[in-house]
């Protein structure tokens, strides 16, 4: 998902002696494979992950690791492992968020004779955790400023270089140095700011929002049109901040219940974007994502109160990219016209 794959690989390859197989990058073949064996009305992340699992199994892996939870996603690994077993694959699927408790993990390690270098665990856990944090902070800077870049592609090239340096770094302090070095480099990239900056917030379901393949590279496309972006959902938000913030959201919105997954967060963020003079909001979700469907009327209502335009996208393998682009283009034109 997004650029995070390399961090998981980095962590596992340094902690385990066993061979780690990276899943191939998500392509249309992944989705085709996934949809073929999925129930039709399940949400798209199920199809993407199932496709990825099949592709990884074909590459020869026998232990699959999945992270997912929050909504019905939490049960997906059960269903997916059943589907894969029916297809005749032999493997072990671990879900790290639901049901990945210590005893099970220990048994698994024993069963498969995994070679864990326990002494390395704390160090690499810390490094990987920090890496996620740094990557997210750089990416949100990129999202905000890439649209003003003077030399096309300069942000993307620099980010790629940074990731390569991250991969070969083996110390916490060195990592921090690399991060600071690149942060400086990013800040010194030349920008041309237009008179009128257009700022748009992206909210929605976490998988679709974070995987560029699933949202047709929405962020890059908007940046290319000269629109500065903000996105709240990223891995460090989900893992470390969400728990703490949810209480604040409930209090702020005077709500009693959460609605599952990121529904509550998105309502709060809609309000935040409206109150902080953002020019527009784009809400993306995968088709059949229940929590997000539930909140659509609510956020539409909030946005119309503040007169902030909001655009909804529902992503599926049946979504036509042409239609998507037409709507997006019209949305950008509209924001520009409103600004004038």
């Amino acid at each position: 998902m997004g650029n995070y794959g390399f961090i998981v690989h980095y962590f596992l390859s340094n902690v385990l002696k066993d061979e780690i197989i990276d899943p191939p990058k998500i392509t249309s073949k992944t989705l085709e494979l996934g949809s073929k064996y999925s129930p039709d009305f399940v949400c798209t992340p199920f199809k993407y992950t199932l496709g990825t699992l099949i592709e990884s199994l074909e590459c020869g892996s026998d232990i699959l690791i999945q992270m997912g939870g929050g909504c019905r996603y939490g049960y997906y690994h059960e269903l997916q492992s059943q589907i894969l077993k029916d297809l005749g694959y032999k493997f072990k699927l671990i879900n790290l968020i639901n049901g990945g408790n210590h005893i099970k993990l220990k048994k698994l390690i024993k069963d498969y004779n995994l070679h864990i270098r326990y002494y390395r665990l704390p160090k690499y856990y810390l490094i990987a955790k920090t890496m996620v944090k740094y990557l997210d902070s750089i990416e949100s800077y990129v999202r905000k400023n890439r649209c003003y870049e003077k030399e096309k592609g300069s942000f993307n090239n620099l980010e790629e270089k940074m990731i390569n340096e991250f991969k070969s770094c083996h110390s916490y302090f060195k990592l921090r140095k690399i991060y600071q070095k690149y942060l400086k480099k990013f800040k010194s990239l030349q920008l041309i700011k237009p008179k009128q900056e257009i700022k748009v917030g992206i909210i929605g379901e976490l998988y679709t929002i974070m995987e560029p393949y699933a949202n047709y590279n929405l962020e890059q496309k908007l940046n290319d049109k000269g629109i500065s972006l903000i996105r709240f959902t990223n891995v460090s938000y989900l893992l470390y901040e969400k728990k703490r913030k949810v209480k604040k959201f409930l209090k702020n919105l005077k709500l009693k219940y959460r609605m599952g997954a990121d529904a509550l967060d998105n309502i709060y963020h809609t309000k935040y974007l409206c109150e902080n003079d953002y020019d527009g909001i784009i809400h993306i979700k995968s088709s059949f994502c229940t929590p997000e469907i539930l909140i659509m009327p609510i956020i539409e209502d909030i946005a119309s109160k503040y007169e902030v335009p909001i655009l909804f996208f529902s992503m599926d393998m049946n979504t036509s990219e042409t239609g998507f682009e037409t709507r997006l283009e019209a949305f950008c034109d509209m924001l520009e016209m409103r600004k004038k």
Binding site: E307, P309, T326, R327, A330, D333, M334, M337, R338, K340
Partner: peptide
């Protein structure tokens, strides 16, 4: 004179 909202059949 400014587009405020639009929808297209999906």
């Amino acid at each position: 004179g400014v587009i405020t909202d639009y929808a297209m059949n999906t």
